[in-house]
Design a protein around this nucleic acid. Structure first.
Lengths: 195, 195
DNA sequence: AGTACATTCGACCAATATTGTCAAAACATA
DNA sequence: TATGTTTTGACAATATTGGTCGAATGTACT
C-alpha cells in the first residue's frame, strides 16, 4: 500500500472515532485527549494527522455532510420521475434533518451559537442547495420542468421548503404529513395559475 | 412556607437539573456553569446552595440511590412470598442495573476510574446489601428461610448474584434468562444437598 | 549495519476554562 | 426603614486544554 494511502486511512480512522466522541460529548466538551485516547494514540500523534482540533471538527463535518449527500443522492437517483424525485427528496430531508439536528444541537446546547455550528449549518445548506439544483436541472433536461432561472428558482423553493419544515417538523408524527407535502408540491410543480 | 423548606426545595430543583446535565455531559464534563445555566441561575447562586461541585455530585448520587431503593422496595414489598420476593428483586436489579450503569458509564467513559465513580459504586453496593439483608431477614421472620448468619449469607449470595449478572448481563435479551434465574434461585433456596 | 523516512510519544508551555470566594446589590418581609 | 435571604458579577487561585518540539521508535531500502 502507498505511503500516503496508509496515512489517509489512519486519518479516516481518527475521523470516525472523533465522530463518536463528538456524538457522546459534543464538539465543545470533547478534548483532543478524548479523541486521542479513543483512537488509541497519544495526543501529539493526533496532531501528526491534523493541524488543530478545528481541523478535526471540519473533517468530521465534511465527512458527515458527504454521507448525508450520498444517502440523499442514492435514494433520489433511483427514481426516474422528477416529480416523485422531488417528493422523495423532501421526505428524506425531513427525516435526516431530525437526525442531524440532534447531532449538532448536542454540540452547543447552551453557550452562544458557536463558530463551529455556523460552519456546520453553512456546509449543509450549500450541500442541500447543490443537490436541489441538480434535481431541478435534471428535471429540466428531461423536459419535465421549466423555470426561468435555476439558481433563483432553487433558492426560492429551498427557502419555501425550509419554512414548510419549521411548521411541519414538530408535528412530524402526524400521518397527514404526506398529504400536506403533496399539496405544497402541487403548488410548486404546477403553480397557482390555472391553465 | 418555612424558610428552610423553601431553601430545600430550591436545592432539590438544582439537584434535578444537575441530574439531567450529568446525563447529557457526564459528571466530569459538566461544569458548574452548565449546572447554573440549566438551573436559570448564576454560578455563585449555585454555590449558595452547595459548598462545591463535589457536593452537587454527591447529592445527585444520593438522590438517585434513593430513587433506586424506592423502586426496588416498592416492587418487592408488594409481594408476600419471600421466594418470589427474591426472584423479583434479582430481576429488577438486572433491569435497573442496565439503566444506572449507562448513567455512570457515561460519567467517566475513559480516564482512569474516578473517585466519583468509586463513591457511586460504594453507595449502590451498600444500598443493595441493606435491601437484600432485609429481604432475607423478613424471610427468616416469616419462617421461610433459615440461615446461620444473615450478614455472611447476604454477602455470599450478593456476591454470587453479581457473578451471575456479569455472565447474564450481555445476554439480557435472551428470553431464557428467567429460566436460568429460576435455576440459580432453586440452588440458593434449597441448597444443593438432597433432602 | 546504516541511512532516510514515517510515525509515535512524553514533556512542556501558554492560553483558556473552571472552581470557588466575596462584597455588594436586589429582593422580600415585617 | 430595618433585617435577613437570595442573587449576582467581578475576581483570584487552580486545573485543563490546545498546541509545539525534540527525542525515541519503527520501517523499508541499500
Amino acid at each position: 500500500m502507498n505511503l500516503t494511502e496508509k496515512r489517509k486511512e489512519e486519518r479516516n480512522r481518527i475521523i470516525e472515532t472523533s465522530r463518536e466522541v463528538f456524538k457522546k460529548y459534543g464538539c465543545r466538551k470533547a478534548t483532543m485527549n478524548d479523541i486521542a485516547y479513543a483512537s488509541g494514540k497519544a495526543k501529539s500523534s493526533v496532531y501528526y494527522y491534523f493541524k488543530s482540533k478545528d481541523e478535526v471538527c471540519n473533517a468530521v463535518i465534511f465527512t458527515e455532510a458527504g454521507k448525508y449527500r450520498n444517502t440523499v443522492l442514492k435514494a433520489v437517483s433511483e427514481i426516474k420521475n422528477p416529480e416523485k424525485q422531488l417528493k422523495a427528496y423532501i421526505l428524506i430531508r425531513l427525516q435526516t434533518d431530525k437526525v442531524y439536528s440532534n447531532f449538532y444541537n448536542s454540540m452547543n446546547h447552551f453557550s452562544k451559537k458557536s463558530k463551529f455550528v455556523k460552519r456546520l449549518k453553512k456546509i449543509y445548506d450549500d450541500e442541500e442547495f447543490r443537490i436541489f439544483s441538480n434535481i431541478l436541472k435534471s428535471g429540466i433536461e428531461a423536459g419535465y420542468f421549466d423555470v426561468y432561472d435555476i439558481k433563483y428558482a432553487a433558492v426560492g423553493i429551498v427557502t419555501a421548503m425550509r419554512g414548510l419544515e419549521t411548521v411541519l417538523l414538530h408535528q412530524f408524527e402526524n400521518p397527514e404529513i404526506e398529504k400536506k407535502i403533496d399539496n405544497i408540491l402541487k403548488i410548486i410543480l404546477y403553480g397557482i395559475v390555472k391553465r
